[in-house]
């Protein structure tokens, strides 16, 4: 169809195919965040992955194409890079139907969904999965076994498969998806965080390697503090340290990097005086 033949909504009447969505997925996996910058974050990436599809939809060289691209690239955009194609899929379903008339709705969709999707994506894919599988990989690695790393790779490949699947799902279901998805995702996030919390407890017990070295002499008797702690519960010192850092992180102006350096300096000092040692 030549670019002169336009529908009233500014599109060429092009129907988005499975191949188009596959191309979007390829671009998404290969370079969605390459253009990430401080000013507008993923704005140029959002357009880059759908650019070939938009060119087909509006026709090359048309003013509608320019308007659509401007509307997609100019505003700030930032969401979870694991869930961003949900927005993309719904967006394309709208634009295919309504053309440039739909751009206003699309802008609302983008700003409305990017926040909630970012928090769901960050907690599941940015925090829980890395906790569970990263910790597993780390734990096995410290015992000299790289197998855990490969388990993590396999899990991430499954996640990538899911990222591709959701583009198709979002395009087919359009706006309906938003309501059906949120309930199920909340229940899943909650259950997954049970496992996350459990694993952190287990990791505190196995991976913080410090014990009390000081054995003060009180009234002529040498007191083995570590042994006393062990009688209360094994691994009490690591638990206390994690509790201390947890409290520290709640202080105003505290950042994770500062906390790392505080622990570094404290350990060196207490280690040098022989109060704690590696264990």
């Amino acid at each position: 169809m030549s670019s002169n033949e336009k529908l009233a909504n500014g599109t060429t009447g092009y129907k988005i195919t499975k191949d188009d969505l596959a191309q979007i997925n390829r671009r998404n996996l290969l370079g969605f965040q390459d253009g990430w910058n401080y000013e507008r974050m993923q704005h140029s990436g959002y357009l880059w992955i759908i650019l070939p599809t938009l060119r087909k939809l509006y026709g090359d060289g048309t003013p509608e194409l320019k308007e659509a691209c401007r509307a997609q690239c100019a505003p700030f955009f930032n969401t979870s890079n694991f869930l961003n194609t949900i927005i993309t899929g719904i967006d394309l379903a709208i634009e295919e139907e309504e053309g440039i008339e739909g751009l206003e709705a699309v802008a609302g969709l983008k700003t409305g969904l990017m926040g909630p999707l970012a928090s769901i994506g960050d907690s599941i894919f940015g925090s829980l999965l890395p906790t569970i599988f990263g910790a597993l990989a780390a734990n096995m690695a410290m015992n000299g076994n790289p197998l855990g790393i490969f388990i993590w790779v396999v899990v991430n490949i499954l996640v990538d498969w899911f990222r591709c699947k959701q583009t198709h799902m979002a395009y087919e279901q359009g706006m309906k998806l938003v309501t059906t998805m949120s309930d199920r995702l909340n229940a899943l996030t909650d259950a997954a965080s049970v496992m996350g919390v459990f694993m952190v407890g287990a990791l505190v017990a196995t991976n913080v390697g410090i014990v009390i070295a000081a054995k003060p002499v009180i009234g002529g008797v040498t007191v083995d503090l570590q042994n006393i702690c062990n009688m209360i519960c094994p691994k009490l010192v690591p638990a206390a340290l994690v509790g201390f850092v947890y409290w520290l992180l709640g202080k105003k102006g505290m950042t994770s990097t500062k906390a790392i350096f505080i622990v570094l300096v404290l350990s060196i000092a207490l280690g040098a005086f022989g109060i704690i040692c590696k264990g």
């Binding site: 952190v200 390697g209 590696k278």
Partner: peptide, 25 residues
């Protein structure tokens, strides 16, 4: 200092766990 640094190597994971607990419910 070397001994202190190796103690720190054992203690550092505690920070990772504490940060995580701040983000988890």
């Amino acid at each position: 200092l070397g001994d202190g640094l190796s103690v720190a190597g054992g203690a550092l994971p505690a920070v990772g766990f504490a940060i995580l607990l701040r983000y988890l419910p």
